Simulated scan of single mutants.
Amino acid sequence: MTSTSAARLWHTVTALAAAAGLGTQLVLVVTGASVLVEDRPPGLAARLLHFVSYFTVLSNLLVLLTTAAAARRPTVDGRLWRVLRLDAVVGITVTGLVHWFFLRPLLQLTGWPYVTDKVLHVVVPLLAVVGWLLVGPRPRITLRVVLLGLIYPVGWLVYTLVIGAATGWYPYPFIDVGARGGAAVAVTSVALALLILAFSVLAWLADRRWPPTPRDLPTGRP
């Protein structure tokens, strides 16, 4: 199997896993199945708004979009794609780590909610990160891409805090101002921003130092 065909296969599997996880989760949301415990389950419109407000969902969606493009053309490139690809890899990395160390102990899931949770928080992060390491495409990251990539996570955080202040609903307990207080959430927010920046810089350095891939087609330095 050539480097390009291996990359195409890996990206295809990753995109399908993300699509399956997101699709199943959407069905659970529409049918009213609860993933996170809520004392008063909201109506459909609110559930859909909550669905698209989770960093997990958005990061999986970015993985789906960028790996689907890479599956079609393993050497895919473009200014916007580079930013979205970095956001996908860094975002899904943070998603997996935060879930595993902080959120997983809080969840008591069974059946399809359990399966979907594992796909979105474990399977897709592993496929996306390992795929980026092994099949790229690389090189694609510059300092400008790193800086532009911060727009997504910072924008999500601002959006989440604004929606939370207006409705009282927060997607994750560690940014719940009502429960933890503004000072604690501010510290957490800064820590998250620094974590995302650190992973973005590490990805930039790795992208510069590691061999270009796929190897059997020209990639060109950015």
Results as ranks from 00 to 15, higher is better:
P173Q: 10
P173K: 08
P173C: 05
P173A: 10
F174P: 06
F174T: 10
I175F: 09
I175A: 00
I175R: 02
D176A: 04
D176Q: 04
D176I: 07
V177A: 08
V177D: 05
V177G: 07
G178K: 10
A179H: 12
R180N: 15
G181I: 07
G181T: 03
G181E: 02
G181L: 04
A184D: 14
A184Y: 07
V185R: 00
A186I: 09
A186Y: 07
A186S: 15
T188S: 13
S189L: 03
S189P: 08
A191Y: 00
A193Y: 00
A193T: 15
L194K: 07
L194C: 13
L194F: 05
L194D: 09
L194Y: 01
L195P: 00
I196L: 14
L197C: 12
L197T: 12
A198K: 01
F199R: 01
F199W: 14
S200Q: 10
L202T: 12
A203Q: 05
W204M: 11
L205E: 04
A206L: 15
A206R: 12
A206T: 13
D207F: 05
R209E: 06
W210C: 07
P212T: 09
P212I: 05
P214E: 02
D216E: 07
D216G: 04
D216V: 07
L217N: 04
P218Y: 06
